[in-house]
Design a protein around this nucleic acid. Structure first.
Length: 343
RNA sequence: UGUGGAGUAGCUUAAAGGCAGAGCGGCCGACUGUUAAUCGGUUAGGUGUGGGUUCGACUCCCACUUCCACAGCCA
């Protein structure tokens, strides 16, 4: 037999990632991938038991759904196609038949993100619900996250022990999660920035109403709470085109992000969707998107629509948080990242 | 893409202008009460690449390259 490449010795990240096919045999990696499996099943069990229908959405898509991120191009016979960044638009078609649906599959983002929170290929579960407003959505997310965390605690005690996860932090993830508006969050950030003494951090925490939050903002906000934090009502300008404007306050939209505690950041992004066809067309123009790409999506409203909402949960970020990992790369057996697609 | 840090033996590292050293691994032998690594011996690199400064460069300078962290983008 050949000598086993991984010795009972500390190794560097690059070496371990080059030897990922062997590394997954080690104790910690074994534990993480088992927790991932349990979380994945918990996600599906919760939704299945809550009346959701699982409908798969296409991975090959003709254009950018949200019109923002960079997508991976693939050749599709004589045409250019893209790997899907979300199944949401298709979900919105599916709820008009099924009421409550979810898709759960690989998602691709060609952003050159070089952080501990990003993969170029990751799994996202996207529930979408008809007759659901923003408040209903938050309640759903709360129940969903609570179920996932409590199931992981119950079924993965041994794995979390191996990972030396402080489970007392996870045991608190139950009941109502705090909800703050974007306006309030900006106020809090101003106060927190005042208290900050380190000039470098103080600079990072600069923010004005209308700016999207950066990672440092999310971190200090979540540090104020022990549970995941809902931040709702972001400025429309920093969010996707399809989000429903706030009544009497069109500069704000009915969006909500769920920020995980302990510095794990955004694990869910969601919103109430626009259900009025004319507002949607206007929004598409306002975002400089080609309306012809969205004709069927606009038609969903033209033939009768209902208030509806949905969100996307990143599986790997959730696994990283529940396992207490410093980096997302260990949450999947063979991660695809900027500068890494081997093995 | 920007900022900062780092590339020395298979792996993890020491050497801060003056002879590149160690631990683990490997190999040889001993042990045979054993599951993070028994004991002895031995092997192994000329320092990411290309230039430059210097009597002399792992060490200083420039370019390139790879990796890491943070930021942006987002799940």
């Amino acid at each position: 037999m050949e000598d086993y490449p991984i010795t009972p010795k500390e190794h560097g990240v690059e070496f371990l990632m080059d030897n990922r096919h062997h590394w997954i045999r080690s104790r910690r990696q074994w534990a993480i991938l088992r927790v991932r499996s349990v979380i994945k099943k918990a996600i599906m069990d919760f939704l299945d038991n809550d009346g959701f229908i699982n409908i798969d959405t296409p991975i090959i898509t003709p254009s950018a759904a949200e019109g923002t991120s960079n997508l991976f191009e693939v050749g599709y016979f004589d045409e250019t196609a893209y790997l899907a960044q979300t199944g949401q638009l298709y979900n919105e078609a599916n709820i008009m038949s099924m009421g409550k649906v979810y898709c759960f599959g690989p998602t691709f983002r060609a952003e050159k993100s070089k952080t501990r929170r990003h993969l170029t290929e990751f799994w996202m579960v996207e529930p979408e619900v008809a007759f659901c407003d923003l408040d209903d959505l938050m309640v759903l997310e709360e129940r969903f996250i609570t179920y996932i965390v409590q199931t992981a605690l119950e079924k993965c005690a041994a794995e979390l022990e191996i990972l030396e996860r402080d489970t007392t932090a996870l045991e608190k993830i139950t009941g109502e999660f705090p909800r703050i508006s974007y306006d309030k969050a900006v106020e809090m950030l101003h106060e927190l920035r005042e208290k900050e003494t380190d000039p470098e951090k103080k600079k990072e925490l600069e923010i004005e109403w209308g700016d999207d939050f950066g990672s440092p903002h999310e971190t200090v906000l979540t540090q104020q709470f022990e549970k995941p934090l809902f931040v709702y009502g972001y400025p429309s300008a920093v969010k996707a085109f399809y989000m429903e404007p706030w009544p009497d306050r069109p500069e704000v939209c009915k969006s909500v992000d769920l920020l995980a505690p302990e510095g794990y950041g955004e694990i869910i992004g969601g919103s109430e969707r626009m259900s009025d066809p004319q507002k949607l067309v206007d929004a598409i123009h306002a975002h400089d998107l080609p309306p012809e790409n969205y004709s069927w999506y606009i038609e969903l409203r033209q033939f009768g629509s209902v208030p509806h909402s949905g969100f996307g949960l990143g599986l790997e970020r959730t696994v990283a948080w529940i396992c207490g990992l410093p980096h997302i790369r260990e949450t999947t057996a063979f991660p695809r990242m900027l500068y890494r697609m081997n093995p």
